[in-house]
């Protein structure tokens, strides 16, 4: 072995002072940190580029509306009072449909999680229903439930139902079995075990399922308002699309995005409140 210049931990070369070197730090990265302001910067930059591009003509009016025009459209919409007419109807559809779908989905999901026969019978059915594009069923829903609100509620309810079922029974399956066994060992009744151990234990899974279900509900809102809706954010967007009115189109899409962010924040708050026990 030739003499090496690397410093060695061996006490045989205590005089290797000239090769002393600080150990290089190599443990950085791979640790996500909260950097909230970055999102705002990204948004601001995109909007600024769009504004500048449309003003200079670098982006044609056919490609993208001018952000300031979109804002003006929103202000006009608000001033005309139509914003709340659209929003009110859409929110009603969203709330009624999603509440129906999610509560039914949680109920069915819990029964699937608890009873083997129900699981054997319903899991394949839910798996068959899950991938159906709900939009394709809209004409059918119109025949079943009429062209008015009921068919819109039904479409949104159906769309939120299946993902909620899947998330819920998965969450029930994931409840720590040792906790259930503990309940049994203390002689708790079946109902007590379900109410006090299974349901709270499944809550994190159910809530994260709801996050997805509610996003799907917003997507389906536009689909639900395709047939027979004169007012509503979805109808507003569709009308703007058929008129090729990009300002209104983007204004509508912006409202939907804000609705999504709002919903997601709300669930986040509920999670923090209900799931504070998580370590």
């Amino acid at each position: 072995m030739p003499e090496t210049t690397l410093s060695s931990p061996s006490p045989a070369s205590p005089s290797g002072a000239e090769t002393r070197q600080e150990v290089r730090f190599r443990g950085g990265g791979f640790a996500p940190k909260s950097r909230r302001w970055v999102a705002f910067v990204v948004f601001a930059v995109i909007i600024a580029v769009a504004e500048w591009g449309t003003r200079t003509g670098w982006i044609s009016a056919l490609t993208l509306p001018r952000p300031s025009d979109v804002l003006q459209t929103l202000i006009d919409l608000y001033a005309s009072g139509m914003l709340f007419k659209h929003l009110g109807l859409s929110l009603t559809r969203l709330v009624v449909g999603a509440a129906l779908g999610a509560s039914l989905g949680i109920a069915v999901g819990v029964t699937i999680g608890l009873f083997s026969y129900v699981r054997a019978g319903l899991v394949p059915l839910v798996a068959a229903l899950f991938p159906i594009p709900k939009i394709a069923l809209l004409p059918l829903f119109v025949i079943w439930f009429g062209i008015d609100e009921a068919s819109k509620y039904a479409l949104i309810a159906f769309g939120t139902f299946t993902p909620t079922v899947v998330a819920t029974y998965g969450a029930v399956d994931n409840v720590d079995r040792s906790l259930i066994r503990m309940g049994q060992s203390f002689g708790l009744s079946w109902l007590s075990i379900v109410r006090k151990i299974v349901l709270p234990g499944a809550m994190p899974g159910i809530l994260s399922g709801l996050r997805i279900s509610l996003a799907i509900a917003i997507i389906l809102l536009v689909a639900a308002e395709m047939l027979g809706a004169q007012y509503g954010i979805g109808a507003y967007i569709l009308e703007a699309g058929s008129l090729y009115d990009l300002e209104r189109l983007f204004a509508g899409v912006l409202i939907l995005s804000l609705l999504g962010v709002l919903l997601s924040t709300t669930i986040g708050m509920i999670e923090r409140r209900l799931l504070g026990w998580r370590s």
Partner: peptide, 25 residues
């Protein structure tokens, strides 16, 4: 009455709540 290796405490209940759990029934 069992005492388990992994404690089997309900994480969403306080110390008091975990004890009252077995009394409620």
């Amino acid at each position: 009455t069992y005492i388990f290796q992994d404690f089997a405490l309900l994480p969403w209940r306080s110390v008091r709540g975990n004890i009252s759990l077995v009394l409620e029934d």
